[in-house]
Design a binder for these strands. Structure first.
Length: 480
RNA sequence: CGGGGCGUGGCGCAGUUGGCUAGCGCGCUGCGUUUGGGACGCAGAGGUCGCCGGUUCGAGUCCGGCCGCCCCGACCA
């Protein structure tokens, strides 16, 4: 590679992002337009995300299942808003086994229709409710413009689908999963997301109400990092998901769906990355610590590697995800930069001096060069490292929160809003009308409502854009 | 789909108004010296210049068409 580092963020943020994703070995382009190859290091990160989300899904009573990739075209067409929303993005299979199919098959862009169909067969009684299902799957959406992890033609995600007896139960589920996503983003990914309700214009095709967690990226743009939808009875009516209640009355179910995708990896890259590359939160990092041995002579090499291996085994036993970089063909300096680019939270250096003193040098990825190195005793190192993981995790969340808050502004006038969204997020009274949102988008060069935050102070005021009555405030920002 | 940029060893690029054996850096292989912030020497391997057609004595270079990729917009997780 001509340049070993990445393009500085200030020079070209989009280029920086692409550089980091590729040079940190997360993903590569594929022969097919818009598709990506997730490389082992990137996939391990995804596995960590899956692990933490799945744990939370199970803890809230959900079970995993798997539904097919192909959906009959007619299913997609049953729900009017849904087909309108997804039709432009569908990949359609017209031939199979060399024969033209009687009915084209859609490669799932999302599975509400197919799962709705299955639910209609599974549910008869109120005793079958709630039905709480999740699936981990790939989906395909033929988007105009793609970017690694942020928007690819095929992507990996989880989609939760649930059915309930009442609106209240469905709404409670919708909010519960939004909470799960918020908790995951804040406590695992160290991203201080903003949970809230989507506007009429931004909500999911076919939903009663959509909720999202919105994350601020390093260029201040917003990224929708997860969504939770109350689908009302729209899909239940379309797919005949009915049950007999306690009074022997036949009723339609209330359903929800919610999803988080590989886009979360893009969110982590852009929420935490710096000009040296990736910075991973310890709780999700494939490697939480890397040991870099330093030596000159053959004897030094032997004693240093011996000590390094002992420390590696110690940390491994202590539950730390650790790797010992034994490469002989590159210098320690190269390794330092290499692992920094890959975002490993903690580097443990060990050289002849350390072996003699019974110490190691600890270098934190979350602190700036010059104030990130300390010496530590090998004795009690496991405890110290585990402690540091928590410190680094907390510090990354603190850094991201400070950055977010520095770019969040409450505004009281339209002029103020237009000014703020150039380099920040604006919180403003908003009537929620699509026409009004279109106007704001046109006047601001692309800013859209992100969501209505959950914690509203109440009251009523004039919409910042049109002056009509508004009951809530919404965040506005340019978004990915 | 509109605007911009780009296709030359694995990666990043140079290649003048067409000209002789297509170069450079990084990476890769071997040997030796190195190693506390991106090491160095020597010897090697690796190319139908995106594809098709045309102009010409001669095309990486000029012309036409096609394909692909990246970035910016409209659309979206």
């Amino acid at each position: 590679m001509a340049s070993l580092g990445v393009t500085p963020r200030s020079e070209d943020y989009a280029r920086w992002y692409t550089d980091v994703v590729q040079k940190a070995d997360l993903a590569d382009y594929s022969p097919v337009r818009g598709c990506m190859i997730i490389k082992p290091y990137g996939y391990e990160l995804w596995e960590a995300i899956k692990r933490e989300l799945d744990r939370r899904f199970k803890a809230t009573g959900h079970q995993n299942a798997y539904f097919p990739l192909f959906i009959p075209m007619s299913f997609m067409e049953k729900e009017a808003e849904h087909v309108e929303g997804f039709a432009p993005h569908l990949a359609v299979v017209t031939h199979g086994g060399g024969q033209k199919l009687d009915e084209p098959l859609v490669v799932r862009p999302t599975s509400e229709t197919l799962i709705g169909h299955a639910f209609s067969k599974w549910i008869q009684s109120y005793r079958d409710l709630p039905l709480l299902i999740n699936q981990w799957a790939n989906v395909v959406r033929w988007e105009m413009r793609t970017r690694l992890f942020l928007r690819t033609t095929e992507f990996l995600w989880q989609e939760g689908h649930t059915a309930h007896a009442t609106y209240e139960d469905a709404q409670e589920e919708t909010m519960r999963m939004l909470d799960v996503y918020t908790d995951f983003a804040v406590n695992e990914a160290a991203i201080p997301v903003m949970p809230g309700r989507k506007s009429e214009k931004e909500k999911f095709a076919g939903a009663l109400a959509s909720y999202s967690i919105e994350a601020m990226m390093g260029d201040v743009k917003a990224l929708q990092a997860g969504t939770s939808h109350n689908l009302g009875q729209n899909f239940a009516k379309t797919f005949e998901i009915k049950f007999l209640d306690e009074n022997n009355e036949l009723k339609y179910c209330w359903t929800t769906s919610w999803g988080v995708s590989t886009r979360m990896i893009g969110a982590i890259v852009m929420a935490h990355g710096d000009d040296k590359g990736l910075r991973l939160p310890p709780r999700l990092a494939p490697y939480q610590a890397v040991i870099v041995p330093i030596h000159r002579t053959a004897e030094e090499r032997a004693t240093v590697l011996d000590a390094a291996e002992r420390i590696r085994a110690m940390l491994d036993d202590g539950g730390v995800r650790v790797i010992l970089d034994r490469r002989d063909d590159v210098t320690p300096g190269y390794k330092f930069n290499d692992w920094e680019m890959r975002g490993v939270p903690l580097r443990i250096e060990i050289g002849p001096r350390d072996v003699q003193n019974g110490t190691v040098v600890l270098a934190r990825r979350d602190l700036p060069a010059g104030q990130n190195k300390t010496s530590a005793s090998q004795e009690g190192l496991v405890g110290r490292v585990i402690e540091l993981m928590d410190e680094i995790q907390a510090n990354m969340l603190r850094q991201a929160t400070e950055f977010r808050d520095a770019h969040l502004h409450e505004v009281n006038s339209y002029d103020e809003l237009k000014e703020v969204v150039r380099d920040g997020w604006a919180l403003a009274w908003f009537c929620g009308r699509p026409e009004c949102e279109d106007q704001i988008k046109a006047d601001t060069g692309g800013a859209t409502s992100r969501n209505f935050p959950l914690d509203q102070e109440g009251g009523e005021a004039k919409c910042v854009a049109c002056g009509r009555p508004a009951k809530e405030k919404a965040y506005f920002a340019k978004a990915y």
